[in-house]
Simulated scan of single mutants.
Amino acid sequence: MNTEYHFPISSSTASNCTVKTIRDESVGTIKDIMLDTETGEVAYIVLSVDTGFLNLGNKLLALPWEAFDFHGHQRDVIIVKVEKEKLENAPGFDDDNWPVGPQHEFINSVHTYYGFERRRALIE
């Protein structure tokens, strides 16, 4: 029996979900979903890491859309499909220091770090 569900999810719903690892460890919450204004696709998701997770403090991480599983069995939980060690060593930023500069370079670096390919060619 296929229990997966496929339906649109609002950004406010995603932001109210708990993000957990595949091993059911609470990681944090989705702070924001960044849209690429040229392609109309999700550029990356900003994950707000819980203070207690891996002693990372209140770190924000940019992850590709593909790094998340929105089709789990609990509608209030989103699974991050990235190993804890990868998250622990990920480049991050804080609330007062969001990424600036050429966004296509930043978006490409996010996908490269986590090992996900961009779905579309970049418009430059």
Rank of each mutant, 00 (worst) to 15 (best):
R119A: 02
I123D: 07
A67V: 03
G92Q: 05
A43K: 08
F70Q: 07
L54C: 11
L87T: 02
D95N: 10
E38A: 13
F68H: 06
M34I: 14
F93S: 08
H71R: 12
G40P: 04
N89R: 15
L122I: 10
N2C: 06
H6S: 12
S15W: 00
H71K: 10
L63C: 15
E105W: 03
V27G: 01
T13H: 14
H71F: 04
I107W: 04
L61R: 01
K31A: 11
V110A: 07
E85T: 12
I30C: 07
D32K: 14
P102V: 07
I79G: 00
S48F: 06
I123T: 15
F116H: 13
T37I: 09
H71S: 12
E88R: 15
E66L: 05
T18M: 06
N97E: 07
M34Q: 14
T18E: 07
C17S: 12
G57W: 09
S26Y: 02
F106M: 10
G57L: 11
V49R: 00
Y114S: 03
T37G: 01
L56P: 00
E41T: 07
H111K: 06
D36K: 07
E25C: 10
L60V: 00
T29Y: 08
S11R: 12
V82Y: 00
S26K: 11
M34E: 13
V77L: 05
S26C: 06
N2F: 06
I45M: 14
I78H: 06
G115E: 05
E25V: 08
I78A: 05
R120V: 02
R23E: 15
P102E: 15
K84M: 12
T3A: 08
D76K: 10
L122A: 15
V27P: 00
E38N: 12
I9C: 14
D24P: 02
P64L: 01
K20Q: 14
V110W: 04
A62D: 03
T51R: 14
N2V: 12
D50T: 05
N58M: 08
K31N: 10
P102G: 13
D69A: 09
E117Y: 04
E66A: 09
E88K: 15
S11T: 11
T13W: 05
V82D: 00
L54D: 02
I78G: 01
T3P: 00
N108Q: 10
P64D: 05
T39G: 04
M1N: 08
I22N: 06
I107F: 04
W65V: 02
F68G: 01
I123K: 13
W65C: 03
W98G: 02
Y5I: 14
K81H: 05
E117F: 04
Y5N: 08
